[in-house]
Design a protein around this nucleic acid. Structure first.
Lengths: 194, 194
DNA sequence: GTCTATACTCTGATAGAC
DNA sequence: GTCTATCAGAGTATAGAC
């Protein structure tokens, strides 16, 4: 197998294992087994478990934060932005439901990471969003609260997915359908209130 | 120190350590140090790390699920219930912000737990809530969606607390104030829409 | 690039004295 | 009930042959 293939393959299965078990719960042996290689090979491509984890985490954080960046820095009216954010976030999380718990958990375990993640560019910044809310709705709507609402409403159902599925007595497919239906519900609820 | 004191003391510090690092990340040595005893004593009171963890988890889950049980099975009108749920949940999470990530993460790592947790009584059941919504608002409001909204809006800000604090450039105290302010905001937003 | 074998550390758990 | 000392297993990482 070519270098690139092996490396990509490791990252693919490492993602699955780290998503499920976190940094401390994951085992290099399991990653090696799933990748069809042995532990020595893992250390040939990645110097340590932590380094491998960091690569996986940074990829995941890009996707996770992408939703928010998309919302904050997108073009168009507030209504259009919110509309797009809902579709983008829910569709994206349907494909990779474990990503939120993974990122949140790591950021909780290892809060120093946050500073590093936000240091990059000025990409993650609420000020444009705030200005837009103010211009269109004045003081009546609190931009920070609206932002908290949007993010919460879209993301939390995926975080608590195992509980909700049990509570509502539905399976994987029904949950996905519920999330699709939720897009319309959220647009009505969020936009009608503005 | 008396038996009860030592045991309670262990549970208190074990909670802190497990909340921060999870099952696999926690170290018996650290728990022993913080409790002011040695590892042998830990195993005198709790047969294994997993057993200690289970006790901590079950206590935490009671608190976590208490919010929802409170909502689902409470007395009074829907409006009153929602009002109470918001106050109860936000006040409770302010006191123990780490609990949500802890519970969610463990349920994600170890999904078999969910069945056990729900098996107990018929306490966690959406049907009363659904009936109440239907009676008061007919088909216009989707009870499951409304339920998802309430829980998401109250809980998610605490889960993503480290990120939000960084994003909004506020400290611990300001975050708490924001959550207090949020109670009023949520009541207006949720109840005006019904 | 890939493997086998192994070194070495960490950590959960127990034995046994007091 | 509490401690010291120690064992046994697991798990990361590396040496070195091919």
């Amino acid at each position: 197998m070519e270098v690139q293939d092996t490396r990509e393959n490791i990252l693919r299965v490492a993602k699955d294992v780290f998503f499920k078990k976190g940094l401390s719960g994951a085992r290099m042996q399991e990653i090696a087994d799933l990748a069809g290689i042995n532990k020595a090979m893992l250390h040939y491509y990645f110097t340590s478990k932590e380094q491998l984890f960091n690569v996986v985490f940074e990829n995941a954080f890009q996707i996770f934060a992408g939703h928010i960046i998309h919302l904050l820095n997108g073009d168009g009216s507030l209504e259009k932005k919110i509309d797009l954010y809902i579709d983008y976030t829910i569709d994206s999380l349907k494909k990779s439901p474990g990503i939120t718990v993974f990122v949140i958990n790591e950021l909780n375990t290892n809060p120093e990471r946050i500073t590093g993640m936000f240091a990059g560019e000025g990409l993650i910044d609420l000020s444009l969003f705030k200005r837009q809310v103010q211009e269109q709705y004045g003081e009546e709507i609190d931009a920070e609260m609206l932002f908290l609402d949007m993010v919460s409403l879209c993301i939390y159902p995926f975080i608590a997915q195992p509980i909700f599925k049990r509570l509502m007595k539905i399976d994987e497919a029904a949950f996905e359908a519920l999330m699709n239906q939720r897009k319309g519900w959220l647009k009505k609820r969020l936009l009608n209130n503005l």
